[in-house]
Design a protein around this nucleic acid. Structure first.
Lengths: 174, 174
DNA sequence: GAAAACTAGTTTGATCTAAAACTATTTTGA
DNA sequence: TCAAAATAGTTTTAGATCAAACTAGTTTTC
């Protein structure tokens, strides 16, 4: 990502610094995407050294918190399509971080577990994630954090209501 | 997106409704991604009939608001890498929605403009976008909207500070 | 007790994305 | 001035994502 480095004068208005956002400036969706992208990139750079992405971290954590979870339940919890999980989980398995066990009563589904290596990786990633979220906490302000997360969750549950999804209803605030 | 349809009892804890989110429950970044995904999908379904994506809509609007903008400036304003814009803009040009004019003083860059067809498409999309954002407004509450957007923008500008990006500083609230 | 409907997971196809390498041009600075 | 550094945009590469089609196994229903 190259620094913009003082752009020179131009006859074309738009090449200058001040860009007009028009209706986008008032759209929650637009700012949501920009904030998410920025956050994603920041974490990705933090944990990219260890060959992880924020998405893989979320999978490891959800499996850690819910040993034996199935892929479909994991997909719902993570808000990603189950077909997206297939290659991600294969990768984690190939790296020896998770196990997939057949469930006795149902030969269709797998029970997912972390391996010891997976637990270790998760522990290391938690530290990075915590550091990143501390930064976000500073940006948002701890006194606003609870409400901010509540608002984000409300968006998730309201917009995916028609798809029957459950919003993250875990333990909310410390 | 299939409805989950009342899951039956299982011996595996995790297949049940209540999924534990652990540290993720308190991570702004996690909820940010989930909210953004949900919002993106909702808009995509709305405007998908017309073969548009939220990303294409943002490009059209930014070009509409900043006639003659260059691709690099557009990339910065939209928060996406310029290489991502190349195919998107080629598509818009092929569909006759934008023009790319060589800039007199600089043979490297293009000045982007909407065609009349592009303006018409943008107008139609604005209606969809407005409808979607009205829904988000209801979810967040108009009395909280300004602060919510301010928080999202703070995340963008704080996290991309090292990359030299400018946060969206357009006209803020109505 | 089958046939039909449903569920779990994978495969395939189409998009979208960032990053790095590359070409062409412009600016800088010694 | 002219070589080096910087900038605009494209190409290439690799990876992620969803949706739909598919396979295999399970439940429902008549």
């Amino acid at each position: 990502m190259p620094k913009p480095a003082k752009p020179r004068e131009r006859e074309v208005q738009a090449a200058q610094e001040p860009v007009r956002f028009g209706p986008l400036a008032n759209y929650i969706g637009f700012h949501l995407r920009r904030a998410q992208t920025a956050s994603f990139q920041a974490v990705a750079h933090r944990i990219g050294q260890a060959d992880f992405t924020p998405g893989l971290y979320a999978l490891l954590t959800l499996i850690e918190q819910n040993p034996g979870i199935t892929q479909t339940a994991l997909s719902r919890a993570d808000g990603r399509d189950k077909s997206s999980l297939t290659p991600a989980l294969s990768g984690l398995q190939k790296r020896g971080l998770i196990r997939r066990e057949r469930i006795a009563g149902d030969k269709r589904s797998y029970a997912l577990h972390l391996t010891p290596a997976g637990s270790a990786a998760a522990a290391a990633l938690h530290r990075h994630a915590q550091a990143h979220d501390d930064e976000l906490d500073r940006i948002i302000g701890l006194e606003h954090k609870a409400q901010f997360i509540r608002q984000l969750r409300r968006i998730v549950s309201a917009l995916s209501a028609d798809t029957g999804e459950d919003g993250p209803d875990g333990e909310a605030q410390p």
